[in-house]
């Protein structure tokens, strides 16, 4: 299964599950990263980390390690 951290530039995907064990899971949910939501990788820092995702009408930068708790399809 892929995670949001593995998306390529410009790729869209739908969140299907969230790793609740991850300490950042709660904050990501609060910001609108919920199962069923479509997200898109819209940008990367020049060190490929953090990543910028479009979600629910805004863009949110998230570290790769934190984006890894979002399972996508």
């Amino acid at each position: 299964m892929r995670t949001a951290s593995e998306l390529t530039q410009g790729e869209s995907a739908t969140i299907i599950d969230i790793d609740n064990q991850h300490p950042s899971a709660k904050r990501l949910i609060e910001l609108g990263f919920t199962p069923g939501q479509q997200i898109q990788l819209v940008g990367k820092s020049f060190f490929n980390d953090p990543l910028a995702f479009s979600v629910r009408g805004t863009v949110i930068a998230v570290r790769k390690s934190e984006a890894a708790c979002l399972k996508v399809r």
């Binding site: 819209v42 020049f46 979600v55 629910r56 805004t58 863009v59």
Partner: peptide, 28 residues
């Protein structure tokens, strides 16, 4: 819903440049 949940298009376009490897680094 896709349109409603689409971020500002101009912002996405600008970020394509400002967050890119070559230009992004130079502009930073």
């Amino acid at each position: 819903k896709n349109i409603l949940h689409k971020p500002d298009e101009l912002t996405i376009k600008i970020d394509k440049i400002l967050l890119s490897k070559g230009w992004g680094f130079l502009i930073f």
